[in-house]
Amino acid sequence: MKVFDIIFNKVVRLMEVFLVIIFALLVLDVLWQVFSRYVLNTSFSWTEELARFSLIWLSIFGAAYLNARREHLSMDFLYGKFSDANRKKISIFIEILIFLFALIVMVIGGLNLVYTTLHLGQLSGTLRIPLGYIYAIMPFSGFLIMCFSIYHISKISTNQITV
């Protein structure tokens, strides 16, 4: 299991770096948009679209990162009422549901969306980027979430994660 822990930590670290880069790009883009509008008295139409696409990638990829860290939003009022043995079973069940959601909605649905937009040749309005490339973050993040769910199930099963 040690090899999987090393791989997990490396992937999570790469995700952190990538998320910081996306966020920095988003901040610089918005700052340029504000500067150009109010100081240069001109507006670049591509800045709004780049900010939107950066926010999409930041949100979806950030959700995968939070899933890896097990810091996603949860309501644990009822969960806290269960015994430790039942918490373990419920935690595994929740990870299975997360896995299935990522598989069906994010991976299968995302791949369908990417394929459809690339097949139809849809381009973004200003940047002229194929929208399939923008939407590709959905199946990629879904695949990562699936991998993280399997990792978490193995950790929960061997009592390496407290529930």
Rank of each mutant, 00 (worst) to 15 (best):
residue 67 N to M: 09
residue 22 I to M: 08
residue 100 L to M: 14
residue 8 F to W: 07
residue 131 L to H: 00
residue 140 F to C: 02
residue 64 A to W: 10
residue 77 F to Y: 13
residue 42 T to L: 06
residue 147 C to R: 00
residue 162 T to I: 11
residue 50 L to G: 01
residue 79 Y to T: 03
residue 84 D to T: 10
residue 60 I to R: 01
residue 107 V to Y: 03
residue 162 T to H: 10
residue 33 Q to A: 15
residue 88 K to Y: 03
residue 95 E to A: 11
residue 128 R to T: 12
residue 47 T to W: 02
residue 152 H to P: 02
residue 36 S to W: 10
residue 144 L to T: 07
residue 16 E to I: 04
residue 100 L to N: 07
residue 3 V to C: 09
residue 82 F to C: 06
residue 23 F to Q: 05
residue 106 M to D: 04
residue 115 Y to L: 08
residue 69 R to A: 06
residue 130 P to F: 00
residue 34 V to Y: 02
residue 49 E to Y: 04
residue 156 I to M: 02
residue 114 V to F: 06
residue 97 L to A: 11
residue 37 R to K: 13
residue 57 W to C: 05
residue 74 S to F: 07
residue 13 R to A: 12
residue 48 E to R: 10
residue 11 V to N: 01
residue 65 Y to R: 04
residue 135 Y to C: 07
residue 141 S to T: 11
residue 79 Y to Q: 07
residue 154 S to Q: 07
residue 120 L to M: 14
residue 2 K to V: 11
residue 98 I to Y: 09
residue 36 S to G: 14
residue 155 K to H: 06
residue 154 S to V: 10
residue 98 I to R: 01
residue 78 L to T: 12
residue 89 K to G: 00
residue 29 D to E: 11
residue 98 I to N: 11
residue 160 Q to R: 15
residue 27 V to W: 08
residue 64 A to S: 14
residue 35 F to E: 01
residue 125 G to N: 14
residue 57 W to L: 09
residue 76 D to W: 08
residue 152 H to S: 03
residue 17 V to G: 06
residue 146 M to S: 06
residue 130 P to I: 00
residue 148 F to G: 02
residue 34 V to A: 12
residue 76 D to G: 11
residue 11 V to A: 08
residue 73 L to S: 10
residue 65 Y to C: 00
residue 141 S to D: 04
residue 22 I to S: 05
residue 17 V to L: 11
residue 136 A to H: 05
residue 90 I to C: 05
residue 19 L to N: 10
residue 49 E to K: 09
residue 137 I to W: 03
residue 75 M to Y: 13
residue 107 V to S: 01
residue 95 E to T: 03
